[in-house]
Design a protein around this nucleic acid. Structure first.
Length: 459
RNA sequence: CGGGCUAUAGCGCAGUUUGGUAGCGCGUUCGUCUGGGGGACGAGAGGUCGCAGGUUCGAAUCCUGCUAGCCCGACCA
């Protein structure tokens, strides 16, 4: 975390805009056509390295890490074990599952110096199943869910939309191993609940929709979609699903009935992508609740039974002493894609508007008259106090005019801004401004800090 | 993978038709004035014109080949 104790710490040093690497662009790069891509480039979050491949600059990297942290926390809360698998894999396991040929051109194939066929992993079912089968022999070691958050690569024919459809992407993928279908369905439900909680924590409304299983295969699958005009999928849903919220309710992830009930709650209202859309069912909804819009897919959960455990011989001994293939499922959250999706869902003409839970800095300090001793010292005091309280400020201490500082703050989207200028300081006040509403209130610095503490204690 | 297009300074672009030694805006550096929504003035720095070959006295410009990237479609977390 951010420590206020050591004023020379790197985090302290680089939270001053004069020393922070934030290459913002005034003009829109011509290659970017959708709003999140444009804003991520303009806000200095990413830099394109090749088609569909991006470097994450400090500001973008901070957001990516925040999302990763939330995903980890919610996975661990649900009882899943974090681990890390490599990006490069041997082709051998993929030949065993039969997917080496099935996957086609989307898989990036590499040959090492020994002539061995390698690949940059697009997903990890084979690898995890291999790990599992070598170490688990008994039903007593189940249930088990392993996951990791790692870079993947899919050699898209046509990457586009910035990080929303890159070739390289950062993704959480998890795999559950259960003794039978009933247990695996609990894992499925548990994942649905934990995903709902994950997205809610990020300040997003992600709707689970019945979906197609695609190349992963399997029977049961839901996609989670964030509504946004620029979404790649057309979606049909019952408006009432938007009213559902997990909120503060306590969830026991080991409670099969509770998880099943929550899944039931979220899958009862109609919600489907165009792939699985059923016009007859949709038309049965009262017209006032019938909604059509576009959505960005930010996650998917699958139950695929023994699709991999059979061919790869991942079996355990059950209570009767019989050797049976384990029932599996997999689940993914597109972490890097979420950065774009959040921006698509939360921005205005001036720039990004970060939800408090994922913002790269919690508050921006704008010094309207750099070099004015009163303004400078008021800003320094605020900066130290906010830093000490873990309210991670970004202090714009550049020799810039007010307009430029405001424009930068609006562009990078910090949800709160404290504006400090000689005019207000005459009366001992600063301004606290909400990026989302634009509402601005004058108050003494201590009150602004207290307000921010209250706001952030809730996220 | 089909169709279309682009490549000139960090970013956005003009110059290519008609070959003559590279320009504008923003940004950037220095100075002065300014100071509550991208300010003004002055002085600078910055480019193998995507790469290779060819034509020519001379190529950003014409020709050939290559590479990279973008858009529409089909496809996809």
């Amino acid at each position: 975390m951010i420590g206020g104790s050591n004023p020379r710490s790197r985090s302290h040093f680089f939270m001053r805009l004069s020393r922070y690497f934030l290459p913002v662009l005034k003009e829109t790069p011509s290659d970017a056509h959708i709003v999140s891509h444009r804003l991520m480039l303009r806000a200095g979050m990413i830099r394109q390295a090749a088609a569909g491949i991006y470097s994450w600059l400090p500001l973008g990297f901070k957001v990516l890490r925040r999302l990763e942290d939330i995903v980890h926390q919610e996975q661990i809360r649900a009882g899943h074990d974090p681990m890390l698998m490599p990006t490069l894999q041997s082709a051998d396991l993929w030949r065993e599952s039969g997917r080496y040929d099935d996957y086609g051109e989307e898989m990036l194939r590499i040959t090492d110096r020994h002539g061995h066929d390698m690949l940059y992993g697009p997903t990890n079912e084979e690898l995890i199943t291999d790990i599992f089968r070598n170490s688990v022999q008994s039903y007593k070691q189940l249930p088990l869910t392993l996951y990791h958050i790692q870079w993947k690569f899919r050699d898209e024919r046509r990457p586009r939309f910035g990080v929303m459809r890159g070739r390289e992407f950062f993704m959480k993928d998890g795999y559950n191993f259960d003794i039978d279908k009933a247990a695996a369905m609990h894992a499925y439900n548990r994942h649905m609940v934990s995903y709902l909680r994950t997205y809610e924590r990020m300040g997003l409304k992600a709707i689970p929709m019945r979906a197609d299983s695609g190349p992963i295969g399997g029977d049961d699958t839901h996609e989670f979609l964030v509504l946004a005009d620029t979404g790649e999928s057309e979606v049909f849903y019952d408006k009432r699903i938007l009213d559902l919220s997990l909120g503060e309710r306590a969830v026991d992830y080991d409670d099969w009935d509770q998880c099943a009930a929550i899944k039931q709650e979220w899958t009862t209202p109609y919600a489907r992508t165009d792939e699985t859309h059923d016009a007859a069912l949709f038309d049965a909804i009262p017209e006032e609740y019938r909604m059509t819009s576009r959505g960005i897919e930010v996650g998917q959960i699958f139950y695929f039974g023994t699709k991999y455990s059979e061919p790869m011989n991942a079996r355990v001994t059950n209570a009767d002493g019989d050797l049976v293939p384990v029932h599996m499922g997999s689940h993914g959250i597109g972490v890097s894609r979420l950065v774009g999706a959040i921006i698509e869902a939360s921005h205005d003409d001036n720039g990004i508007i970060w939800p408090e839970a994922v913002t790269p800095f919690k508050v921006g300090i704008v010094n309207l008259k750099q070099g004015d001793s009163e303004a400078d010292s008021a800003c320094e005091a605020l900066y130290k106090e906010l830093t000490a309280k873990g309210l991670e400020p970004l202090y714009d201490d550049r020799e810039e005019r007010a307009g430029g500082k405001f424009a930068t703050m609006d562009l990078i989207g910090l949800p709160w801004r404290i504006t400090v200028g000689p005019r207000g300081l005459k009366n001992g006040v600063v301004e606290l401004t909400s990026r989302r509403t634009g509402e601005s209130r004058e108050m003494v610095p201590a009150e602004a800090i207290a307000e921010l503490e209250a706001i952030y204690s809730e996220v």
